[in-house]
Design a protein around this nucleic acid. Structure first.
Lengths: 199, 199
DNA sequence: CAATAAGCGGACCGGGCGGTCAACTTGCTA
DNA sequence: TAGCAAGTTGACCGCCCGGTCCGCTTATTG
């Protein structure tokens, strides 16, 4: 589209600084941190932040877009894995590990208004659906589970651990493991409600 | 302590109106709704709200305290139930059903500063620990699960469904069911991380 | 090295928030 | 029913937030 000439060296560095500071700040203190705090953490002025990202939501969207794209790629690569059950578990592990601490709600909050994020998210969701379908056909997950279910449950381990004050770093793995056991065919009980259509 | 004379009739009614309006508003639109909106929904002035609740957090704490107390009572009653596994599931069902939609984070957010809420929460947690212990001894849940695990997972069904745009009313039951299957002994895989000590 | 445009920063703005207050209304009681 | 304490109200306050703007700095380039 707009053939934009490359960023000046310092500007490129500052952009990276801002993205990193914002990611940390969002992760540690939630989506409500002020842009002033983010800029301060990056060691830059507030004006600089707004030169790089027109709005606070755009900054959030840039971070989320990165992560979703990375996840999408991981998902696609895992489609060729030998063990479909292990592949799905691996995907969920990467997904939960990538978004540390409390930046769980990233997926929805940012996508509301940004078309790029929405599109990337849908591509990533498609990967998940395929992973789940493969795992189901292989008997690695129960028959009554859908991709939409897994997408919804994907962030739960992070959510759950965000409520323990000084959580040890790997605690989320415990809850991913429990939830994944709930997805397995062994000992599965019939589900009381059909899955949602949307995601 | 302070022998306070009973509220005037209209004041008592308004207090109930405010609590109901706040509960609805928090549930529908999250904890960030303005006190002005809550007062408007109750059909009252903002000043009236602050006469009944010194601060917005106090209002939230009053709501949360009610719910936690109710949950504590349910938990204690279920301790006498014949089937410990069914009792635990019933408790989790009541817990998830009680806090509809997105008011999931009630437990932590409000208790941060309010001593009453903290105390009530700890009592309720004690009930959960007992329910889980009984269920474990009975073989209804896996041996490596603790009360703290269940407390953390308690709100997950609501959290998960809060991300589907127009969720059908009972959808949370699906995810409670999946997660509960993950708590059962059949098909359980060893957990990769010890449980947290705190709750 | 000089010229210049790209980048930077912080004072500033409008708006919305939680919370206050003094003038007004109303349920209770004797 | 008269008197008054209890209750109500919305205009108002100070604060902080996202976002703007313009004078200043600096990387780039011929």
């Amino acid at each position: 589209m707009t053939s934009t000439r490359p960023l000046r060296a310092d500007a490129a560095r500052n952009r990276r600084l801002l993205l990193a500071a914002a990611a940390d700040e969002f992760a540690e203190r939630g989506l409500d941190v002020s842009v002033a705090d983010i800029a301060r953490r990056a060691g830059l002025g507030k004006g600089t932040l707004f030169r790089h990202f027109a709005t606070k939501d755009d900054l959030l969207a840039a971070i989320v877009l990165d992560r979703i794209d990375a996840l999408k790629t991981v998902g696609e690569q895992l489609l060729d894995a030998a063990d479909p059950g292990a592949a799905l578990l691996e995907f969920l592990t990467v997904a939960a590990d990538q978004q540390r601490q409390r930046d769980l709600s990233f997926l929805q909050e940012a996508g509301e208004l940004n078309a790029d994020v929405t599109r990337a998210r849908e591509q990533m969701f498609r990967s998940v659906h395929k992973l789940v379908d493969r795992a189901r056909e292989h008997g690695a997950v129960r028959a009554d589970i859908t991709g939409a279910d897994v997408i919804l449950l994907m962030c739960a381990p992070n959510y759950v651990t965000s409520y323990v004050p000084d959580a040890p770093p790997g605690l989320w793995q415990r809850y991913l493991s429990i939830i994944f056991d709930g997805l397995r065919p062994e000992g599965a009980h019939p589900l009381p409600h059909p899955p949602p259509a949307t995601p």
